[in-house]
Amino acid sequence: MSAFLRAMGAVVWKDLAAELRSRELISSMLVFALLVILIFNFALELDASARANVTSGVLWVTFVFAGTLGLNRSLAIEKDRGCLDGLLLAPVDRTAIYFGKAAANLVFILVVAAIVLPVYSVLYNTNLFAQPGVLLVILLGAEGYTAVGTLLATMAVQTRTRDILLPILLFPVVIPVLVAAVKATSGYLQALPLDEIRPWLNLLVTYDLVFTAAAFMVFEYVVEE
């Protein structure tokens, strides 16, 4: 168990250290996320009345799109530099590599969220931090998203059509996360009673558990060579 954690920690650390040096992943995700918000601003006329209803939708679409960019890049780097093969040659459990990559991707999305939320709050003069529940939803949603996303991105980067394939593979299977996260976020933002939010939280937790377990079980089949 401790060997497993050490291997996983090493993968996470490798990704974070590389990112600290180059900053290419988070910076591109971040700029992209801000651009998406900007586009929504003009496409949806985000005035005060419209915003109340669509804020959570805009936020989640932003995270999902930026997340796709990050996932694709994160695994493409591994593939192109031959790191994936190197990692696989290392005498560690393959699933430790999966959890390491997934955790690093989760950190990237959370960092982007940590910057997007205050920026959005300032731009639209609201306080998204007023309800701590929102942060919980983001954590749960991002976990489910990266759990599946890391698995599918690992497959996508090994195909001929890798640049276009990831969203096509990923979006139809993360719809439950998106629906539940959007509804739960807007529930918290509108300060609805917990009873109305709980079904969505339950769904998010179920999704996280089911897909983390499933990805954990099948990951070794997508990296063998």
């Binding site: 698995l151 497959m155 195909t159 139809p172 299977v173 099948v218």
Partner: peptide, 14 residues
């Protein structure tokens, strides 16, 4: 075949 099998499983669970 391998990737197809994995995606068929993931898709079905979703």
């Amino acid at each position: 075949a391998r990737f197809g099998a994995v995606y068929a499983i993931v898709g079905f669970i979703s």
